[in-house]
Amino acid sequence: MSAETNGHVVTGSPRIKRGLAEMLKGGVIMDVVTPDQAEIAQEAGAVAVMALERVPADIRRDGGVARMSDPALITAIIGAVSIPVMAKCRIGHFVEAQILQALGVDYIDESEVLTPADEEHHVDKWPFTVPFVCGARDLGEAFRRISEGAAMIRTKGEAGTGNVVEAVRHMRAVSQGIRRLHGLRDDELPAAAKELGAPLELVRETARLGRLPVVNFSAGGLATPADAALMMQLGCDGNFVGSGIFKSGDPKRRAKAIVAATTYFDKPDMLAEISADLGEPMVGIEIATLGREELLAARGI
């Protein structure tokens, strides 16, 4: 009754790269800076961890050039957990990306949180076997990253602020852009593609689906279960939480609560219970107090 595969297997195809992101939907990806934190995140129900030397709040505080993390740290975090491990490379730094692939990370975040290495070009992500996630502030940015090979999109938000306002702005911008495309006639899509600086095929596919052809998470400033549920109600597929967990008073409880709020995002009675008694959230930053050069979201557009 049983039979074998015919032996021919394909790795690193767009379907396989996008497929892992599909498996992460409805989940929370947490920034961690030590193997211990990675274990706490896994125990709390994270679907993946982002291995970093410093969370964005500290990168913001320290200043200077922020680069890929030490491979020894990333390897130690990979060894500590069974869930997928992501790591960040600088925008356009394809050698950092090559190193991360060689280390065996499960996803690469080509991230504006690190200092860009190339002000004109992002990494050409198609030749890599490992999938990439990239940030976007609007639909045009999302399309450009997908056309470069990104297998997953996240909002940029404003990382390390504990302020969800920019993530909301970016998620609304992407959603509004998609709704607009969805309402256009076929013969109006080429002009829309031109305006967005995006390949027509990608624009057509998105208009037909009524959503991006890749998974779209929120990121950048989430700090509470209510923030996580807000982003889910705005239509994202899942949440990245960076500084918001391990910069809070009780990371374990907050991590569990944010995982639960991402699943039960549309049930206010449950959210009320989930949100109770979590200790101090991270201290937030009002975006208007940041100088233009301090805004990470403006990097790599």
């Binding site: 009754m1 049983s2 039979a3 074998e4 595969t5 015919n6 021919h8 297997v9 394909v10 790795t11 690193g12 195809s13 379907r15 396989i16 497929g19 892992l20 990979i78 997928p84 692939q101 065996g104 990370v105 499960d106 996803y107 076997t129 490992v130 999938p131």
Partner: peptide
């Protein structure tokens, strides 16, 4: 790790002679 994830054509006689494309 993810770089070893793959697509394959799987023979599943219980659903027919054509292999099933799977991930």
């Amino acid at each position: 790790p993810q770089r070893e994830s793959f697509e394959a054509e799987l023979a599943v006689p219980a659903v027919g002679s054509e292999p099933v494309p799977v991930a």
